[in-house]
Simulated assay, not measured.
Amino acid sequence: MESVEASTTPAQAMDHRALAVALLDISSDVRRKSHNDTGVRPLSNGVLEILRVIESHPGITVAEVASRLGRQFSNVSVQLRELVAGNLVTRTRDAADKRYVALHPTAESQRIKALLEGAWAEALASASSRLLPAEREQIAASLPALQRLAAVLAEPE
């Protein structure tokens, strides 16, 4: 089967390494530069990833979170205890099958999510104001493709 990369012309080829590095750098810098003014206690990247999966998929199980993130069940379970203790996630046992535990974000989690996403947006707005108008337009035009790429990457393997 021919890969998508093999069917592109040199002018269309994407530097996936540069894209990956840029996305990771942006993510790291946005989090670092925006967190201090939120009043939210810092969450590790691993804990934040778990919380974002639960917020995107209320009712998900610990095993499903671990699978989506490609992590060990036991590691997710340990980090999940931090989220439960911080009143950011609730665990609900299924009445019919006590082994099944559904995870749900709390109202506090939703409040923090809104605060953080607002702070992230402000950090990006501040940085992008220093770009050329054409660069801001390029970024805006690429948003649907980046959102689609994020959705494809988030799919369970």
Rank of each mutant, 00 (worst) to 15 (best):
E135Y: 04
E5D: 14
E137Y: 03
H35T: 11
S109I: 07
I50C: 06
P58V: 05
E135T: 13
A20G: 07
A96E: 12
S126W: 09
R71A: 08
L19R: 06
R111K: 12
E2K: 12
R41V: 10
M1V: 10
G46H: 09
R93A: 13
L131W: 13
A150F: 09
H35W: 13
L83D: 05
S67H: 13
A154I: 08
D37C: 01
S3V: 01
V65H: 03
L116N: 04
P42K: 14
E5L: 14
E5R: 15
A151M: 10
I139S: 06
V78I: 10
S44C: 02
S44D: 10
T9A: 13
H35Y: 09
H104G: 00
P10G: 10
R93L: 05
R68F: 03
I60R: 02
R17G: 15
N45D: 10
N36G: 15
S56N: 14
A96M: 07
V47G: 00
N45F: 07
E117Q: 14
L153C: 11
Q12P: 01
L115R: 13
L146Y: 05
A11K: 14
A11L: 15
L143W: 08
E122L: 14
R81E: 13
R99D: 14
Q72W: 00
A150Y: 08
A145R: 12
R130K: 13
S74G: 04
V4F: 14
V78R: 15
G70M: 04
S67Q: 14
L103F: 04
V89Y: 01
E55D: 11
V76N: 02
P58I: 07
P133Q: 09
V21P: 00
Y100N: 15
L116V: 10
R148K: 11
S109G: 12
L143K: 13
M14H: 09
G59W: 07
R93K: 13
M1W: 07
A20R: 11
E64V: 02
L132K: 15
L146D: 00
V65G: 02
Q110E: 14
L88C: 01
E135I: 01
P144C: 07
E5N: 12
S56I: 03
L115D: 11
A134T: 13
Q72C: 01
F73G: 01
L149M: 11
L83Q: 06
T9C: 08
E155S: 11
A13D: 05
L51Q: 03
S7P: 00
P144L: 05
P58E: 08
Q138G: 08
